[in-house]
Amino acid sequence: MRDITLSQAVNEAIAEEMRRDPTVFILGEDVAEAGTPFKVLSGLVEEFGPDRVLDTPISEPGFMGIAVGAAMTGARPIVDLMFGDFIFLIMDQLCNQAAKTHYMSGGKLNVPLVLRTNLGATRRSAAQHSQSLQALVAHIPGLKVAMPSSAYEAKGLMKTAIRDNNPVVIFEDKLMYQDKAPVPEEEYLIPFGQANIKREGRDITLIATSSMVQVAEKAADILASEGIEAEVVDPRTIVPLDEDTLIKSVKKTSRAIVIDEGHQSYGVTSEIASRLNEKAFYYLDAPVTRMGAMDVPVPFSPALEDLTVPTPQSVADTARKLCAGELVHAA
């Protein structure tokens, strides 16, 4: 199997779906000639022309509104939102319109729309271009949320998202665009709501999303050298969430850390930890522990920025304490 970058994987997924389905089109800032600042979409405008790869003015609410309307009337738009932080600008179009139209029209209208955007700090992009805001949209019923953790997931989840008849938000890790992973030549889709056990282990489950999957895998390497066998599970989509796989894993290991790059409070980690607490309580031998980004604006200072997100070392430290039976959070 060949190795390709996450960028190429996304590009392939969109190109393949655009070839398969003439109603698929993409719009956003700098998507055509520039191919986005991350060069993810390079070459698409050459193949599909400016009618299906649309450069828009710098007006996120405007082009998001266009996409929602187009989706209601039979097209399958892919909206490119340059930074995940700009999601605040399109909240009404996304959360009040796209997410609720199917319900409010009594099922007469669908919004088959994909919003592709990104997350992730430590790129020295400062507080307004470094947030991981997946929890905001995951909170809204009617939106599906996919969080690819490698090129393989990025392609398979993107293709599933484009074929979904409801709005899907995909968060890609902006630091992972150049990371290569084996991706099959032949077509494949990754179904939503199907977690992936990246690594099997017996002592503790590390549930990690997107950028944090690599962190969890490195933490598992550290722990393995100390005799602690960590299981790494990637939910792949947080809405829908594959509870069964997560619960099964935690019932096996009796311990869990949930790791996500969004702010820790009221975040994805809290939601998953709560479900484990509710549904696997009598199997827990340690408190399910959350590890998210610090509850601070992401600092521009590289030294400070690196402190705000979970690292392999900090995850391993927490796992070690849980496995040793230390009282992590004193009552």
Binding site: S254, F281, Y282, Y283, L284, D285, A286, G325, L327
Partner: peptide, 30 residues
């Protein structure tokens, strides 16, 4: 831990005896 409590209950073990023996808390499955 919840798991230690559940197993103790299922197996008829009295955690109070660990307390009497001065075994350090919190108690886990081990």
């Amino acid at each position: 831990s919840p798991k230690a409590r559940r197993l103790a209950l299922e197996q008829g073990l009295d955690l109070g005896r660990l307390v009497e023996a001065g075994h350090p808390q919190p108690f886990h499955v081990s």
